[in-house]
Design a binder for these strands. Structure first.
Length: 115
RNA sequence: ACAGUAAACCGGUUUAUCGCGCCGCAAGGUGAGGAAAGUCCGGGCAGCACAGAGCACCGCAGCGGUUAACGGCCGUCAGGCAGCAAUGUUUGGUCCCUGCUACAGAGACGAGUGAUGUGAAACGAGCAUACUGCGGGCUGCAAUUCCAAGUAAACCAACGUAUGAGCGCUGCUCGCGUGAGUUGGAGGGUAGGAAGCGAGAGAGAAGCAUGGUAACAUGCUUUCCGAGAUUAAUGAUAAACGCUGCUUCGGCAGUACAGAACCCGGCUUAUAGGUUUGCUGUCUUC
């Protein structure tokens, strides 16, 4: 598993997303709220920065990009199984890449461990 | 030189590592802004509607020009306000008809008169909801078209079937058209894909020429430019340089506003720092 993050590894489709949020397991790795479930075919990831917390599109874009990079660089922490994972940003402040990367690492380790 | 004022423009750069969208068999190519923003005007484009008449309603308003169009832009006139000035800012159709003009005043548009007094205004008028001129069908790309999949032409209630329900025509009236359903309740299904969507007869850009005070128009030239996502690409990390402050000359701090979503022309708002030009005032030197 390399560092890539192509489009087929992104979770999309409103029905699947709604079902995933209903059934997935949740925990918090500040400043992220993580939802995850086992998947059959491929690991798919959803990244979300809410408009209610960040008014400007450029802030949301920036946070999404930081979370995406953090996942992309640390996805090797997962084992060989496949998952659906959602990272929801939940803090009111824009945190740095170092903080977000640490949170993503913690979350991925926890998912791999619980599995 | 300093201060002011009015315009125009720029909006970081480089390297390393990892990565994303679109196009392409591949090699490779290409990928945010001056405001992409607010969605306030105008136009293209799309769908629906459109026999006609009247009354409403909304927008604009010195004058002239410009444009695809505009409430924009350019030029210009008059009054008020700020400033020594350059300049900025603000107001600007009309009173024939309809109506309004508080308090005060004998009287407020009604007249027998109208000096004094009252009052913003005393027969003179001012104003808009009135009148005049011009413009306006409605809805917006979540438009619209196609493909695929799926469901419930079932149930309940009200009104109606030529004694005409309802619908459409602009909000209303007339009038016209249509002619058996319509409305509400409860419930069921879908929310995938493609086109629209960006190289087109471009309201593009740059340069030159001609006309015009200007906005702008016309013509010629060009190895000039060309995002197209859809849980939504255009990035992340590290370093160096540049720029701006402060400095004990070692350095330290800061480097804005902000992210396309059908496309254009404007307006408005946000913006670190910087560049250029015109004009005005003050001072100095020749």
């Amino acid at each position: 598993m390399g560092y890539g993050f192509p489009k087929q590894n992104k979770l999309c489709g409103s029905l699947r997303i709604a079902q995933f949020y209903r059934e997935g397991k949740r925990f918090v790795a500040w400043p992220l709220r993580v939802t995850w479930a086992k998947a059959d075919n491929e690991t798919q990831v959803l990244i979300w920065a809410p408009k209610s917390l960040f008014k400007h599109a450029i802030q949301r874009n920036h946070l999404r990009r930081l979370m995406r990079e953090a996942y992309r660089l640390n996805q090797a922490l997962l084992d060989d199984a496949h998952y659906q994972i959602a990272f929801n940003y939940m803090d009111k402040e824009e945190q740095s890449f170092a903080v977000i990367e640490k949170a993503v690492q913690k979350a991925l380790k926890k998912i791999a461990h619980e599995q």
